[in-house]
Each structure stands twice: as structure tokens, then as C-alpha cells.
Simulated assay, not measured.
Amino acid sequence: MNEKTYPEPGSEIPDQPGYVVGKCGHRIATSEWRAGFRTCERCPAEQDGGGKATTPTTHLDAARVLTGIIRRAEEAGLPLLHWSLHPHTTNLSASPYVRDDDETQSATMAAWAAHLGVEVETERHASYTGAEIETVIDGVRVKIWAHVDRSAAYGQAGGA
């Protein structure tokens, strides 16, 4: 008997709002599915019909992509970001410098989103508002994030 444990890839996972089933069978965030990711961070990249990976498979490949991102950002005069290469995948993540004030972090996120041709998504939490940009650049998952309203976290006036 061929029994399915999960719904089809892309289907919402019952009792886990904000998550869908990836092609690998693991849960992935709905925002990642919308951004074009079809497997979770732990699983190998998707492959084309000939068995060739459609995303970089080594940290060196991802580092080359990062070098290009930084070069183009410098040429465009974008604010600097703190970059990280995930130790177990070829994913890149970045954030503005944490000492920047909320207004500067918001402006940095807007500038990068405009440069990458994507939208900044925000989500209000109990003590801050998080901002995220997610995209794929040359086959590498890129996520830029920031806390753009930390006033509630620090008890400053104006917090929500």
C-alpha cells in the first residue's frame, strides 16, 4: 500500500500555519516557497532533468556568488551588510550592523530591496518589528534581515 504521510509539495501543513510541504518532504516556510525554494535548508539542492544541481553545491560556489553580490553592491553605493555563509548549506544571510538605529536599518533594507528587485516583508513581534528580504541570486538562497523597530524592546517612547 502506497500511503502518503504529508500532503503534496506546496500544500499547507495542518496545525502549522505559515508552513508548507517541500519537495523533500520537510516543512518550509510559506515565504520560502513563494520565493522559489522547493526544498528545506537541510536537503540537497533540486536537480534538473539530467541530474545536475540547479543551485551551487559547495561553499566555494556560494562564496563566489557572495563576491559578486558585494562587488555589485559597492558599485551601486549600497550600505554595507554583515554577511554569513551557513555552515551546513550554501545559503547566505546578511543583516545591517546592529548598532545602526532603526531608521538607518529601515533605509538599508529598502535600498537593498530596491537593488535586488524584491519587497521588504515585515512582521511585528512582541518587542520589535522584523524585516526580511528573501531571494535567489545565481542559484544561492539569500536572506537579509533586520529589526527595524526595537523601541518596544528597549522601553523607548514610540514602541507599539
Rank of each mutant, 00 (worst) to 15 (best):
122 T>V: 13
105 Q>P: 09
142 V>N: 10
70 I>D: 01
31 S>A: 11
154 Y>R: 15
117 G>L: 01
97 Y>R: 02
90 T>W: 03
46 E>W: 00
107 A>G: 13
41 E>V: 14
87 P>G: 02
54 T>R: 05
121 E>Y: 10
56 P>G: 12
142 V>P: 01
158 G>D: 02
106 S>P: 07
93 S>N: 01
134 E>Y: 13
37 F>M: 15
96 P>V: 05
87 P>C: 10
46 E>M: 12
143 K>Q: 11
130 G>L: 08
32 E>D: 15
17 P>H: 11
147 H>G: 00
23 K>E: 14
121 E>S: 04
11 S>D: 04
105 Q>F: 05
75 E>W: 12
126 A>H: 12
134 E>P: 01
38 R>W: 01
87 P>V: 06
84 S>Q: 02
26 H>I: 04
84 S>G: 00
109 M>A: 06
91 N>Q: 12
106 S>T: 00
26 H>E: 01
47 Q>L: 13
94 A>M: 09
44 P>F: 11
90 T>M: 12
52 K>V: 07
124 R>C: 02
33 W>E: 03
110 A>T: 07
137 I>M: 06
12 E>L: 10
2 N>F: 09
160 A>V: 08
48 D>H: 01
43 C>Q: 09
64 R>K: 14
3 E>S: 13
3 E>H: 14
128 Y>T: 01
81 L>Q: 09
129 T>P: 06
17 P>D: 03
42 R>I: 00
148 V>K: 09
140 V>I: 08
14 P>T: 14
7 P>C: 11
49 G>W: 11
158 G>M: 09
123 E>Y: 15
47 Q>H: 15
25 G>T: 03
158 G>R: 07
156 Q>D: 14
52 K>N: 11
37 F>D: 12
29 A>V: 03
23 K>H: 06
5 T>D: 11
47 Q>G: 07
72 R>E: 12
20 V>M: 10
89 T>P: 11
7 P>Q: 12
64 R>E: 15
40 C>L: 10
53 A>Y: 14
123 E>R: 00
63 A>D: 15
144 I>W: 11
104 T>F: 04
117 G>S: 08
95 S>T: 04
53 A>C: 03
102 D>G: 03
154 Y>C: 07
36 G>T: 05
151 S>Q: 10
44 P>T: 05
51 G>A: 08
78 L>E: 15
26 H>L: 01
148 V>N: 02
72 R>M: 03
84 S>L: 12
112 W>F: 09
70 I>K: 14
38 R>P: 05
160 A>I: 13
141 R>E: 15
146 A>S: 07
117 G>Y: 00
108 T>I: 03
28 I>F: 14
97 Y>V: 01
56 P>S: 09
26 H>G: 08
43 C>F: 00
13 I>G: 05
158 G>S: 05
76 A>V: 08
146 A>H: 08
14 P>R: 08
40 C>N: 06
152 A>E: 04
71 R>Q: 12
54 T>K: 06
148 V>I: 02
118 V>P: 07
77 G>E: 00
109 M>Q: 00
29 A>M: 06
